[in-house]
Design a protein around this nucleic acid. Structure first.
Lengths: 201, 201, 201, 201
DNA sequence: ACATAAGCGAGACGGTACGTCGCGTCTTTAA
DNA sequence: TTAAAGACGCGACGTACCGTCTCGCTTATGT
């Protein structure tokens, strides 16, 4: 069925793509946006700049793809009960936000929320990616009768996500390190708060 | 007591400082980070680059100060009841996040959360600035017996702030415009949800 | 044999080099050292500053090369007799010193005579360039028996060059303009004097 | 009699002028034109920039005055005979050209020969300063009948000065050091050449 | 087999912003 | 009014990146 691409010329080396994305994440994670340079990524992945611009037309686009590639997108396992589902999701989310890779998603989403064209639809993809898992989870709870009404789904998700995000944002560098080793301890109060009044008293 | 600075040489013109900060916010708000240029700010404020670098050693530092200067830091009025206080605060917060100036605060906080030196303590300042108003508000509620316990203060604030932040993050450009004109409508569900967590059943 | 440079990457465009050198001389000649700006040269030659600094690490270096490139280095024609040779050389030299391009050579030689590193060997190149033609001329005269002894060659050349140089240095702006149109008239007395030193009585 | 200047306000400190001129020469001699900075001169002489610009309207003007102040202007002693006069003058001239202070004169003269207004009459002053001593010397010789005719005066002076100048210009750094310790040895051949045919055979 | 087409590493290129530094002026306090 | 200190507007410096462009070479397909 691949007769539809009668590729003439040398085919793209898939290894190159992989090397670039890895190098991109490495570079960003290690040195931050300021030193996230196309030349640096090229050098670090042993690739010419042509290979980069052949695939991504700008730095931003590359970063987003690198991000998407290297982020296990916060799975929300079906534990059978909302409470445990939420705890698992929040824990996973905290781990994600504390990881350089995960934090990039936040950064890009925040950046792209205000930018105009060519950068705007990136936020969509990131938001959607994260929303789906959470929505599924809540829908299951609704079906089980654990969650009051349809109209509180978005506020719930936004409060949950937002609480974890704000919690991370509030931590100082030392706190971040400490949190990485005690995920549940940091997450529990937030989950407790968000679930209170939903849980049958 | 001011013998410690016997003012040698020409003193810095405070008007210059003001003009720069205004021009900085203008430039950023109008053109975004990409076109937020030191030369542009200098030109637009009728100031030499020396005057800029005499006060701020980098673009980032300048932006942060401009931010702090020009952001009325989300006053939480004392309406006498937690419910109305929270609604007012959340509305103000939404307006703030939808404003270019306000969104910069988020951007910088997110950026600086992961960076190390020379950019790190900025997050502290921003976080602290926003935390104070909210904490005061909740403390008042605690005193009035409207708020259950001390240990839920931080989760409450983080959920409230986070929910508004996530809400803004979720909006597409069109939604942002629409939200600016219907602040309460967007804020109400979130406030309802968060407040229902602490309402006695 | 050219295996020593296997030409990796895009080769430098020789046309760029040429355009820069021309623009450099133009800029210098028109506006003098004060307005001889790297940005100006770049702009005027339709070239980025990168292309400039890729080849010359400083303004001075560029000027020197521009100089060398665009100075027909005072040819001393073989007329068959010392007297006419000297007159021709001196006339040519006067024209050269009165030309902005030529005077740069003097300026740079004088500057670099006292500077130490990174600017010093430039004087050598300029001096050597001018010395060769003159030495050839005198050697021919020595072979013809028109010039007394080997040991007077350097004093002779230095007196001849020096006399023309001092003559130009002595002229006021008006005099310079007038001299440009009457080269021989200005040169003749100097040549007469210098030649009379070696003429058999 | 000094009632004609009923100086109001604080009188100028003459020591300041002296300190500045000394610091100017020091700075130039040590570091060359590139590092000859108004701020540097001010700092090095313990003086504010105002004091500098109160007296000289530009860097160039200051340098010229510093130059004039600190250069014993090549005295040509009356030894009673042209030959010894010329030898003394040339020796003194060589010493002068080999001295940083003296070389500045050359540099400024060369620079100002091509520059337009505000810098041009400086060459006049320098040229005149040096011309007077030499002219006097030759006039004495003319009166004594040691020098042929009036019309050869300028060529003679220009050849003499020029020969010494070119000789210095031709020296490499090592040669300059060596010449400073053997002035006569370097000067003698030049003087011999210029004086030949004038001296009674 | 050999032309044609594309991928790829390397790095030149036109721009543009960076942060620094110097000029010559201005503005303060102290003498 | 001078003097020391240093802020100020301006503009060039030399560096670094962006995104594009050419090289020479490699690796495929199509004839």
């Amino acid at each position: 069925m691949n007769s539809s691409k009668p590729v003439r010329g040398r085919p793209r080396d898939p290894a190159v793509e992989k090397r670039i994305l890895t190098a991109a994440m490495d570079t960003y994670a290690r040195t931050g946006w300021a030193a996230f340079t196309m030349d640096a990524v090229a050098q670090c992945s042993g690739v010419g700049k042509s290979a980069l611009y052949l695939r991504w037309s700008s730095k931003e686009k590359l970063l987003v793809d690198a991000l998407e590639e290297h982020s296990a997108p916060v799975l929300a396992p079906d534990t059978g009960a909302l409470e445990t589902d939420v705890l698992a999701l929040a824990t996973e989310l905290l781990r994600y936000f504390l990881d350089p890779v995960g934090w990039v998603a936040v950064r890009v989403a925040v950046d792209s929320a205000v930018q105009t064209a060519a950068f705007g639809h990136i936020r969509d993809r990131i938001v959607r990616m994260h929303n789906e898992a959470a929505s599924d989870m809540v829908q299951r709870a609704v079906r089980r009768g654990e969650f009051p009404g349809e109209e509180q789904v978005q506020p719930f998700i936004q409060a949950l996500y937002g609480a974890v995000l704000m919690h991370v944002l509030t931590l100082d560098p030392g706190g971040r390190d400490q949190a990485r080793d005690n995920l549940e301890e940091h997450v529990a109060p937030l989950v407790d708060f968000v679930l209170s009044r939903i849980r049958p008293e």
